[in-house]
Nucleic acid binder design. Structure first.
Lengths: 296, 296
DNA sequence: GTTTGTTATTTTATCTACAATAGACAGTTT
DNA sequence: AAACTGTCTATTGTAGATAAAATAACAAAC
């Protein structure tokens, strides 16, 4: 089946929500940049819109005929790219299923399980290996190193190093740097969440990611920013499977973020470092608590 | 042509040098662990040794008939794995050839150029992308970010952070830790090289890598150790194409290493940090000097 | 009890093929 | 002439096939 047309399907769905608002459709080129796809794909989308009689399309006249309906959309499973599917399957396997460190990972078996070719699985594993959770034995299998206490400690050690440096860098940014405005916006978002924490605490994961990324961006060091991908993926899946006390934990974390933001605004190195350390310490505790002790 | 049999060829060559020393050959299993290959490959090697009438092989009697000759070996090109070939080609292209930052990288073109399938090139690029020199545009080409001054600065920033931490960790190792013995050995190697620097300065690159890796190992943090791969590859190719004043540079670096080693042995944090900073500063200078200024 | 012969099976590394997608160029419309 | 569209080509993403290499099993030989 060569390539899946998930780019088309996903863009088609996004196009439906887009045109629900407006009357007339823009040019093919413009639509392309709007949706982030090439003209080829735009034309495929227009063709389908016409086929479903949502628009009338003749050359440059594209008139709305009717509003899009739920049935017009492609289902969510169809729009996720193969890489996303593989990542989810893999993470479920190694985190949820009793995956022991040292376990062998088999490309063929994984591929069969997920229902894809081996090529995609292989490429995923290569990409994923930079997270330090798996390791390749050439001409042989991959080895799962496991989400162990050691992993968490090594990860947080680097995180703390990087974030202290980034935070110091942030505080030293010139006053007219756009990051300060982003920080203000971030503060508002945090206050909003704190005011409605009972209903909104589940959204913290995403806010957390955005906040730390903002801090790291100021370092303008690609290695620091790239490393944050590892943090993101670990915490993302970690939040999904460890929900114990999450309301309290997240409320506390939002407060720490606000203290951290206030510290950044003082621009005083010692204050910043203190707030940063404080928050990272509790983040580490949370992570460690969720990991089963290997031999306790 | 599916898989190249480079594992066999390379192991065969190593086997030839191995048996040149000894009279009798060990068991198949033992030979396998010695060469780091499976019994299947060992038997293929033995079969070829017999065919060339280098040994007489009948069951468990494996007697040497004659010493291996240069003609018996596979040529060097034949034994390098596809990944190595691709890496070399690629580095030559992007470092030697006038590769501008922002240039597009084309999988198909690269593959045709090197004479391999696209899969291998693709996998190489994915693996290589973690070095921060290239970036993928999904469904489209790769972009060369280039070996620029910014890259070098970002790289060395992390390097200095990591190495200072590793060096401090090294100095704090217990006195009976095997790393101290390794450090003694390392010191001897450095003194040897310094004594014959005029003839040996070209070997510094390898010694440099081994020394810093020894220091980093003490961190026992996989992210620090992995990051050193980037340093290694950058400096490896950097040494290859920038030979200006290399004798003086390397002589100076060996001396700095010796000071660094002496500092580690004092186990005094301030002394260690000072020597470490000193050496890293001149390493950075060397690297920066070799990079063309973007607009000077 | 270790080593080998034998044989079979499994898995990886690599190539090739093809649909999806991107992108280029020339022709058309306003 | 600027913006848009029709058409075509080139490249990527993915599946599937195949040789090399690993792994396994077990009886026979030493």
């Amino acid at each position: 089946m060569a390539k899946q047309n998930t780019v088309f399907k996903d863009a088609f769905n996004r196009c439906l929500t887009l045109i629900a608002e407006t009357e007339a459709l823009p040019s093919e080129l413009e639509l392309g940049t709007l949706l982030g796809v090439s003209r080829t794909t735009v034309r495929a989308i227009l063709a389908r819109l016409k086929e479903l009689e949502i628009i009338a399309w003749d050359k440059r006249t594209k008139a709305m005929l009717r509003a899009p309906q739920p049935a017009d959309f492609f289902s969510a499973e169809e729009t996720s790219s193969l890489a996303e599917i593989i990542e989810r399957s893999f993470m479920r396997r190694i985190l949820a299923g009793g995956a022991e460190p040292g376990m062998q990972i088999n490309e063929l078996e994984l591929a069969r399980d997920i229902g894809t070719g081996t090529t995609s699985v292989r490429e995923f594993l290569i990409r994923f290996s930079r997270f330090g959770l798996i390791e390749k034995r050439p001409n042989s299998h991959w080895v799962l190193k496991g989400f162990t206490r050691d992993f968490a400690l090594e990860l947080t050690e680097i995180r703390e190093m990087f974030e202290l440096r980034s935070a110091a860098g942030f505080a030293a940014l010139p006053g007219d740097h756009p990051a300060w405005r982003d920080l203000d916006d971030m503060e508002v978002l945090h206050r909003d969440m704190l005011a409605n924490i009972d209903t909104r605490y589940r959204d913290f994961s995403e806010l957390d990611e955005r906040f730390h990324l903002l801090v790291h961006r100021s370092s303008s060091n690609r290695f620091i920013i790239d490393f944050y991908d590892i943090i993101t993926i670990v915490f993302h899946y970690h939040y999904q499977w460890n929900k114990a006390n999450d309301r309290e934990r997240n409320a506390r974390a939002v407060e720490e973020h606000l203290e951290y933001i206030a510290a950044l605004k003082t621009r005083d190195p010692a204050t910043v470092a203190h707030a940063c350390r404080q928050h990272l310490r509790s983040a580490r505790e949370t992570l460690l608590q969720s990991i089963q002790q290997p031999d306790a």
